[in-house]
């Protein structure tokens, strides 16, 4: 029986960080306010060696969130059942407090594009994504969280807003949501709407986790601002402000700092986690 109750979400409502192997010793010795970590599922789908050993050691101290980047839930084609099997094995092995994936696609035919690609929001794609989420939750025997994308362009064919699309997925599948406020800020800037109004329209009751991260600033060929989700810099002030805005509405939630490229020394990432702890303080 699939348990989709919110009590099944056991990540602490505290700061977490995206785990990078170069931080292993520092994280074990001076974690600061960090009480949970998130790993990319695919990096732990080898057979053994250091990745497995480090994860076992980390799990003795930290709650774990497994975050998939390769399931292609937004794909037009059937899910890759071989990959779903690998994910099932990983989830069984690590019993994480949370599993999440993206509203995006990355596999087409036999090819994996290694990027989170966008999809239009239509009745057809809604049916597809809902059936994929159900398939994943049935296979894993647990609720999953779905993350909102960072958008650089819009599909003319879309008939649903992203927030309504996500609300409907929650209703149909019982999935939870991972609200990435950096992605909200990026998409809102790139597509010209207010990030606060997006948060207002978002089904906040379903949020099991929040992400913050850094982005790059660029412009498109019309000179319009174009923010790029790089996870390679500190979180900017407007994104921290959007986190504050969101937490006032949701109450306390697990907040993850993502930093995947140009990964800094541990004290820099820990300072970001401390900043997240400060944001959580008023709502604890």
């Amino acid at each position: 029986m699939l348990d989709t109750s919110p009590q099944n979400d056991r990540l602490p409502s505290a700061p977490g960080v995206g785990y990078k192997p170069q931080h292993f010793n520092d994280l074990m010795q001076t974690p600061g306010p960090v009480s949970w970590i998130e790993v990319h599922a695919e990096n732990y789908m080898g057979e053994g060696g250091r990745p497995h050993a480090q994860l076992r050691a980390l799990q003795e101290r930290f709650a774990l969130s497994v975050h998939g980047v390769g399931l292609s839930i937004g794909g037009q084609e059937p899910l890759d059942t071989e990959h779903l099997d690998r994910l099932h094995i990983l989830i069984e092995r690590t019993s994480p407090a949370s599993f999440s994936e993206h509203l995006a696609w990355s596999t087409h035919g036999a090819e994996f594009m290694n990027d989170l690609l966008p999809l239009p929001y239509t009745d057809t794609t809604l049916d597809h994504v809902a059936s994929h989420i159900t398939q994943v939750q049935d296979k894993l025997g647990r609720q999953m969280l779905l993350e909102n994308p960072s958008s650089y362009l819009a599909f003319e064919e879309s008939t649903w807003s992203e927030t309504d699309f996500l609300s409907e997925l929650v209703k149909r599948t019982g999935c939870g949501l991972l609200l990435d406020v950096n992605n909200v800020f990026i998409s809102a800037t790139n597509l010209g709407y207010s990030p606060q109004s997006y948060v207002d329209a978002y089904p906040l009751h379903a949020v099991g986790e929040i992400h913050v991260g850094g982005h790059d600033e660029d412009s498109d060929d019309q000179g319009a601002p174009l923010l790029i989700d790089s996870h390679g810099k500190p979180v900017v002030d407007p994104v921290w402000a959007l986190l504050d805005y969101t937490l006032r509405k949701t109450g306390s939630r697990p907040v993850l700092v993502e930093w995947d490229n140009d990964v800094p020394d541990w004290p820099v990432l820990r300072a970001e986690a401390e900043r997240a702890a400060k944001a959580l303080q008023p709502v604890q």
Binding site: M113, N114, D115, L117, P118, Y152, L153, A154, F155, E156, E157, N190, L191, G192, D220, D221, Q222, A224, L226, I228
Partner: peptide
């Protein structure tokens, strides 16, 4: 065609973000 920028025009260089990422 069918991919747009913020004001309903063609997406143009915005598509390059995905090209570069990959």
């Amino acid at each position: 065609a069918g991919l747009n920028n913020a004001v309903g025009g063609p997406a143009g260089a915005r598509f390059s973000v995905y090209r570069n990422n990959v």
